[in-house]
Nucleic acid binder design. Structure first.
Lengths: 304, 304
DNA sequence: GCTTGGATGCAGTAACGGTTAAAGGTACGA
DNA sequence: TCGTACCTTTAACCGTTACTGCATCCAAGC
């Protein structure tokens, strides 16, 4: 009787292309994977792996067997989902992928709640780039993604994935104390006309914050002066505190501002919307529904 | 990750209706099966078995899981067949069911050849009633059946099974020495007209030999006098030797006749045809094709 | 009542399946 | 050409698993 664990090892080797990569993916040492497959070869009396240079190559029989393994694993996963659904309690492993701010500002409290309320759920966190989250969900690397879009560039409904809105995250303009705009903001909310002509501190190109700034200012005919680029919020805040420029920053995960940095509201306020994404059908898992519920429930009200 | 061995245990319990029956079918002790399923219950955090009187009953979740297990096991069996086919050498377990005479007269030499030529094949023999063999093949209890029909009642091509002819087994009339028919047979072959009016020794009702006798004599307007009924050939021969009557007996597995018993040829000769039966697609297994080949090759020429 | 048949719990044991450490082999660079 | 780095495999070791055998418990039947 073929063993499922061994077939899973073969499948992992087939997918990742090497014994070591498969071992990492499975959480074993390469030695263990190698032995599993050697045992599978003995049991089936078939050569599955052939050494090719420094690595290995799968034989035809191995590729066919790996395809069968994939089929089996899909059925097993389906069965496990059904069991969890029937039981109604979150169980098993749930890998959540979240972008940096959500990982800092939202996930700790969510993960703590999950751990407290559902001890048999093994929830894990992976900080991922929001652009990659759709693919990572599809590939099965993560089961649930926390992603976001931006008011001027809504997230297209991902092909064959389901989603729910977690909440809306508002943006303020960070300025050093004593900045001219602080006096303006004391009288009225800042408008987009107030933004051109500043030295900007923002994220590197390719990030949504960067794009928002460029597109919004260009729409009013100006090219923003992106003088300082840093990925981390704290770095940006430090640059603002040093009086080097102004920054646009969402409230989620921003943390308390140091003395000498002010958060000024904008009108209309830039907003990004946070979503949870999962594979179609995965909502049958209580683990998914419960986590999505907690994400929305624990979404800080002050954000919106 | 659900374990296939445990799922197989659950499936066996589901099929056989009790832990002990499942254990027998799987070749374990009931304790082992009970522990397997207890572990499966812990892993899935689901109740699968409930005590019902002296036995057990499956929960809804267990029935659903057993159905999934069946699906998985079918895929695994298919994969194992493909592996054996690719390798081209008989391997794995092959359960052969044969009716009594074939088990005695044909299978020993076939099994010995298989064991000698294919050490990695685990061939097993089960003596089965020929009427049941079609069902047993369909149920998967046996992988290959050696069955037979009778010239006046050909075996209908079994629904959804494949077959091959092994050979033809001829029948003689056994009489005690000094019986009047012995003198007739010395001059010419016996004909059906010589048969009525004898005291018959034959198998119990329901067996093919019994049916052949009754139908053949009734066709010529006579009711046979079935004075002595015994299932075993040797018993019948002993009854003939004691001068109690005559018997019709196929040559396969008949063994040497004791002094005082003669085998007289009939014209036309009653003949039964031996078949090998297997599930459709199973012929992809070299184990099946090789065994069928040996069955036909080692079929004793003197029989036909 | 006792007996029978079946499921389960427990102790013991053999085999399995992992890790670490060391040993091939191959490609790449000095 | 040799050394190095990388990957796979092997060997030794060890904790865990998964059987068996036996005892126990429960329900049904005599």
């Amino acid at each position: 009787m073929l063993d499922l664990a061994r077939l899973r090892a073969l499948h992992a080797v087939s997918v990742h292309g090497s014994v070591s990569a498969a071992a990492i993916a499975l959480g074993y040492t390469p030695s263990a994977v190698s032995q599993q497959i050697a045992k599978l070869e003995r049991e089936t009396r078939t050569t599955l792996l052939e050494r090719q240079g420094r690595g290995i190559a799968l034989t035809d029989a191995a590729r066919h067997l790996a395809a069968t393994a994939q089929q089996l694993l899909a059925i097993v996963e389906e069965a496990e989902t059904t069991l969890e659904e029937q039981r109604g309690q979150p169980t098993g492993r749930l890998v959540i992928g979240a972008f940096a701010s959500a990982a800092r500002g939202l996930m700790p409290v969510v993960l703590a709640s999950l751990a407290a309320e559902h001890p048999s759920l093994d929830a894990r966190l992976l900080e991922v780039d929001p652009h990659l989250s759709v693919d990572l969900v599809a590939q099965g690397v993560i089961d649930l993604a926390v992603a976001h879009d931006w008011d001027i560039a809504p997230l297209p409904a991902p092909e064959g994935q389901e989603r729910a809105v977690i909440g809306e995250d508002l943006c303020d303009l960070l300025v050093p104390a004593g900045h001219p705009l602080a006096r303006v903001a004391a009288r009225r909310p800042l408008r987009r006309e107030d933004l051109p002509g500043r030295r900007w501190i923002c994220q590197p190109p390719g990030s949504v914050c960067h794009d928002w700034l460029v597109r919004t200012l260009r729409a009013s005919g100006h090219e923003p002066d992106l003088a300082y680029q840093a990925a981390e919020n704290h770095t940006q805040i430090a640059l603002v505190a040093a009086g080097l420029g102004v920054a646009l920053m969402p409230r989620l995960g921003r943390g308390p501002l140091p003395d000498g940095v002010l958060a000024l509201p904008l009108e209309p306020v830039p907003v990004r919307r946070l979503y949870a994404l999962w594979r179609p059908g995965a909502a049958r898992r209580p683990a998914i529904t419960e986590t999505v519920r907690l994400l929305a429930d624990l979404w800080p009200r002050r954000m919106s």
